[in-house]
Design a protein around this nucleic acid. Structure first.
Lengths: 131, 131
DNA sequence: TTTTGTACTTACTTTTTGGTTAGTACTTGT
DNA sequence: ACAAGTACTAACCAAAAAGTAAGTACAAAA
């Protein structure tokens, strides 16, 4: 009934879109549940792993590490290790990472203008109203 | 469009992030494989369903309709039906949809600056180099 | 000796997204 | 009678993303 194709159309479409469309390329780097939040937290300066975790209470360790690793491979963040025990690791944005600021700001502005329910300040793990 | 389980941690995290973070809110509206592409095509003016399909050769009818429907519910696009046969349906952006222009532009600019491989023009179904 | 702290890693399951295939309605043209 | 054109709809399935639970290493402090 259903033939299992050797190549996934999904992957193919994704690759083409990323290659051809700069917006999709960018979306690929900052999309997902957590990356924008992590970048936001790093925009104010380098942070230790534990600080990021505390800043994002809802994230699991797996997702935090995974996001950081992918962003490291994508050259958006740099991981600095001090060879001590217990470990001391900090993360900071590359130039490319910092350069995402304007795009994130533009998205935040649209979100603020066009979402009806207010953007609470509060103790949330999310960026504040004004990015 | 697709069914979601309301009680999943996934859904909960998503809902919180969307509610609290304007960037995540925006990402929710234009994320996924096709929405940015559809919006791009509508930025130049209203288009018929068939025109959109032709402009995006790789999209399936299911995904095109699904994207349009979700964006209609999100009040980014408006669907106009002329009650004729065969059907004549056009889609155009709302003010909110048009207002995404700057955010998409900022993302496109980042993508162009920080992706190494060139943005071919060609007969692709993707936005051209300069958004 | 056991606990504490830090920054992870692994194996596994659930949930969501995207794709495939087939079909619908209605009218005009052949 | 039947194919063509238009804009969909529905059932199903595979693959990707996100979450759960548990464990690792190492040294210092209790």
């Amino acid at each position: 009934m259903y033939k299992t194709k050797e190549t996934s159309t999904n992957q193919l479409n994704k690759a083409i879109a990323i290659d051809k469309c700069p917006v999709t390329y960018t979306l690929e780097k900052i999309g997902g549940r957590w990356k924008a939040l992590v970048i936001y937290n790093l925009l104010s300066g380098p942070k230790r792993y534990g600080e990021l975790k505390k800043a994002l209470p809802a994230i699991t360790e797996k997702m935090l590490i995974q996001s950081l690793k992918e962003m490291e491979l994508d050259k958006l963040v740099i991981r600095d290790v001090k060879p001590v025990v217990p470990p001391h690791v900090t993360y900071h944005l590359t130039e490319a990472g910092k350069a995402l600021g304007p795009a994130l700001k533009a998205m935040a502005e649209w979100g603020l203008s066009y979402s009806e329910n207010g953007q609470g300040e509060g103790k949330c793990d999310m960026p504040p109203a004004v990015f």
